[in-house]
Simulated scan of single mutants.
Amino acid sequence: MRTQTEKAKAFRALHERPGAFIIPNPWDAGTARLLAAMGFEALATTSLGVANSLGSATVSLAAILDNCRAIAEATDLPVNADLENCGAHEPKAASHAIRLAAEAGCVGGSIEDATGDLSNPIYDFDLAVERVQAAVEVARSLPFPFTLTARAENFLYGRTDLDNTIRRLQAFEAAGADVLYAPGLYDLATIKTVTSALKKPFNHVMGFADPTLTVPLLSAAGVKRISVGGAMARVALAAFLKCAHEMKDHGAFTHVREMAPMKEVREAFAKGAVA
C-alpha cells in the first residue's frame, strides 16, 4: 500500500507529464474500486454524488469528509476532494477544511468562490482571493505536497463574464493555487481562451460541457485534468429511475436484462481494493 506522500507525489506527477488525464468521480467505495480496477490513475469525490446518495439537495462538510475517507480508504489511488466552499465563509475557517481533507486521506482538494447562498452566489473578488490564500497556507503546511485546486464558479450561476472569470483564476493562481478550475465552460474556443490566460494546470469538467469533446481535443486546448463531477452519479440515478418507472407505470421488469454481471463486479471490487 502506498503512503499518503507517495500518493501525493504520484498525483503531482500526473499534472506535470505531457497531455491531459481523466480523473473520474466515484461517489462511494464500490464505485471507487470499479474505477481503480479499470486502470484510472486518480479519483475525485463529488459532493453532488454524496448529496444524491443521502437524499438531500445539499450536503454538510462532515458528510463530504466522511465520503472522502471512504473513497480514500477503498483503493490505493490518489484522491482529490470536492470540498465546495469548505464549509465556511471566513478565510481561516474555510482553510481548516484542507487539513481535514488531508486527515481523511486525500492528497488534493478544492476551494471554490461559490457562497452556497443563491441570493448572493459568488464571493466578492477580494474575499475569494483571501480564501484561496488561506487555503494555500494550510496546504503548504502539510507534511506532503497537497495539490490545491481553486475554482471560479461564475458560469454555474449565470455569470457568463469570461473576463471576470479569468481575472479570478489568475488571482487564484498568483495566490498559490496548484490547479485552476472554472466549471460551466461549454465550448472548445472558450476553454482555449481560459487555458491560454493561465500558467498552472487547468481542470475541465465534462458534466457541463459539449459532450462531443474528447481527451485529445481538450489536451490540445491546454486542459491538463478532466473530471466529470456528478455526471456518472446522475447517469446511475437516471438508470435507477428508468427501472422504477417501468415497474410503477407498466408493471414490467425488462430492465433486469441490463443488470451488471455480479461475478465481473465482484472481481473488479477485489482488483480495485487496497492491496
Score class of each variant (00 low, 15 high):
180 L>V: 12
235 V>M: 14
211 P>G: 10
244 A>I: 11
243 C>E: 02
193 T>L: 14
219 S>I: 10
196 S>Q: 15
211 P>V: 06
169 L>C: 12
170 Q>G: 05
179 V>Y: 00
171 A>G: 12
250 H>Y: 10
229 G>D: 04
235 V>S: 11
247 M>H: 02
258 E>C: 00
169 L>D: 08
189 A>E: 15
223 V>D: 03
195 T>Q: 08
197 A>K: 11
186 Y>P: 02
244 A>C: 07
224 K>R: 15
194 V>W: 05
255 H>E: 02
252 A>R: 13
188 L>S: 05
261 P>Q: 09
215 V>G: 10
218 L>W: 01
231 A>C: 03
207 G>P: 04
232 M>A: 14
200 K>C: 06
227 S>W: 01
178 D>A: 07
228 V>T: 13
186 Y>V: 14
248 K>I: 13
173 E>C: 07
215 V>Q: 14
243 C>D: 02
233 A>S: 15
251 G>S: 02
207 G>M: 11
209 A>Y: 03
177 A>N: 09
193 T>E: 15
186 Y>D: 03
249 D>M: 12
211 P>Q: 11
210 D>V: 00
174 A>D: 12
224 K>C: 05
215 V>P: 04
248 K>R: 14
242 K>S: 14
230 G>H: 01
218 L>I: 06
224 K>Y: 05
232 M>L: 15
222 G>M: 08
251 G>T: 02
199 K>A: 13
168 R>Q: 08
196 S>A: 15
205 V>L: 12
231 A>E: 07
254 T>A: 15
220 A>K: 13
220 A>P: 02
185 L>Q: 03
235 V>Q: 06
181 Y>V: 10
220 A>G: 05
254 T>D: 14
194 V>P: 03
